[in-house]
Design a protein around this nucleic acid. Structure first.
Lengths: 125, 125
DNA sequence: TTTGCATGCTTGACATTCTAAGCATTTTAG
DNA sequence: CTAAAATGCTTAGAATGTCAAGCATGCAAA
């Protein structure tokens, strides 16, 4: 069960946190399994809550976040993943060059062919 | 290099994308290993680029994103992870990724040839 | 040519995630 | 009370990620 540390400064483990939320929501582990369409099995959830899994797949964390209505980013952080920061997003564009194809709405197929063609262009020195 | 499926669909894989960026940056796989302080070994990078790894750990993707100066979120998405959404919303199934060629430091010549090639691709539709 | 090195790649070993199946205890129904 | 269901948990093993070591090729200098 979730350890109670209301207002405590000790950081909860990912497992403790998830268990406390589930408890609050009144879900059983099997409820979660069903609600997530087996994305999270009850057995696996038990392992997560008991800290036997260091880093569950982000997509699993996302399923739990949606079901519990909590922050996916927060879960990622608690699991030890670097979280994308909005403020820093897009820095890659600061090399000044205009994103030539940004407005072309390339389909993935076109994108692939163009990259292939660029590789060809550059390969012939 | 682009993978062709039976249906004729072509899509840039995570590996192809990462390889093309590394090529653009002029790094060898061992350069990356050194620059990331062994967070990404050359052997592993090779496997990633050859699509032998379905989902590299997000933290590895983040190291590559920082080294290449590209978007971590974009890499997460290409790797099949759900990306935290804080304000981006409502854009259904559009090809929501960052324009690939914003990252390739195209010369004007390359840009011209790619635009021409894109026109060719679209003309025969 | 030969030597040496840079580069990309492969392999074998190990670590971890994740699933399938089932166990132990408690709770609920009859 | 007993039987069944619910709940949390364990475990074996498959699947996958990751690394150290080494192989093969290409290339450039001697």
């Amino acid at each position: 069960m979730a350890k109670r540390s209301v207002g405590g400064e000790i950081k909860l483990t990912l497992g403790q946190y998830l268990a406390s939320i589930r408890d609050d929501r009144g879900f059983s582990q099997r409820d979660v399994e069903k609600a997530t369409n087996k994305v999270v099995s009850n057995a696996y959830l038990s392992q997560i809550e008991n800290n036997q899994i260091k880093r569950p797949n982000p997509n699993i964390l996302n399923s739990l976040a949606e079901l519990y209505n909590i922050s996916y980013e927060d879960l990622m952080e608690r699991a030890g993943y670097v979280v994308p920061t909005r403020s820093r997003r897009g820095d890659e564009q600061r090399h000044g060059r205009i994103a030539t194809f940004a407005e072309h709405n390339l389909t993935p197929e076109e994108e692939a062919k163009l990259v292939e063609y660029l590789g060809f262009l550059r390969s012939k020195k």
